[in-house]
Amino acid sequence: MTTAPSVPAPDAAVARRPGSVRLLWLLVVVAALVALMAASVVVGSRDVGWSDVVAALGGSSDTIGQAAATKRIPRTLLAVVVGAALGLSGAVMQGVTRNPLADPGVLGINMGASLAVVVGIAWFGLFSATAIVWTAIVGAAGAAVFVYAVGSLGRGGATPLKLALAGTATSAALVSFITAIALPRGDIAESVQSWEIGGVGGATFDAIGTVLPFLLVGFAVSLLSARSLNSLALGDELAAGLGERVVLARGTAALGSVLLCGAATAVAGPIGFVGLVVPHLCRLLVGVDHRWLLPFSAIAGGCLLTASDIVGRIVARPSELDVGIVTALIGAPFFISIVRRQKVREL
C-alpha cells in the first residue's frame, strides 16, 4: 500500500472477492449491455416498435420506423465499441500511471488525436478513413508522451495534480489550435464541431469496419498486459523484483491504451470521462485484479456510452445531444468526488 498510494487501497475483502461473485457481476453487466443495446435501437426522437426493428435487422427499410432502426443499429454498435475502447483505455492508463485521475479525456490525449486529424484534413487533404485513423493514433501517442513528460518532471513524479493540470492545459491549447486551424477554412469549419465534442450520431458500418482492426489489436494488447499491470501496481522496484521488465511492460500497456483511445477518437471525436468513471466503478464490483478489471471496464464502458447516448437522445428531443456532452456532465462530478476522497498528500 505504501508503494502504490494513488490507486484505491485494495482492502482485503475486495482483493479476495470470490470468483462466483465476480461471475455473477459479469452476467449482470453483460445483461445490462444487451438491454441497453436493445433500448438504444428502440428509443429516440421517434420510438420504434419491435416488429420494425426485426424487419430492419432483415435489411428492410420500408417504413419510417424501419429506416430509423436501420440508422440506429450501426450507431448502437459504434457506441458499444467506442465505449468499450475508452473504458478499457482508461483502466489501463490508471494502471500504467498508478493515477486515479487518468483518463484519455482528462489527460488531453483524445484532443491530441483530434488536432492531428484536423491538421491532416485541413493541411494535407486527408480523406481516406484508414489514413484518418492512423493520424489520430499518432496524435494520441504524441499527446500522451507530451502530457506524461510534462506531468512527471520534478519531485514526486507524475502526481495526479500535475498530470491533470498538464492534461487540462494541453487540452486547452489543442482546442485553441483546432479552432485556429479550422476557422479560415469555411469548407471544414462546419464539421469541426465534431472534433471538439465527440458524438456517435453519424455512425455507419463502413466507419466501424475501418476502425475495428485497430481496436481489436488495442483490445488484445491491453488485455494481455493485465498480469504485468498487476505487478506494476506494487511499485516499480517490487515489480522488477518479481521479474517484470518494467519499462517494456509499461510501454506495451500504454501503447495498447493509446491505440484504443486514438482509434475511438478517430471514429467518434473526443469523448471524455468514460475512461475515468468506468474503472472506478468496476473496481468496486470486482476488486483491483486487472485480469478481471480490464474486461469488466470494457463491457461497462460500452454500457456507459450506450446509456449516455440514449440519455442524450431523450433529453434534447426532438434534436439530440452529443454523447461527449452527456459523459462530461456525468463524469465531472465523479471526477470531483474522486478528488475529494484523496488525501491532500497524495494529490
Binding site: L165, A328, L329, G331, A332, P333, V339, V344, L347
Partner: peptide
C-alpha cells in the same frame, strides 16, 4: 487545500463547458 481546490475547479470547468 489549494491543490484540491484547483482539481475540483478543473472538474467544474469541464462541466460548465459541456
Amino acid at each position: 487545500a489549494g491543490t484540491r481546490l484547483i482539481l475540483i475547479g478543473i472538474g467544474i470547468a469541464a462541466m460548465s463547458k459541456s
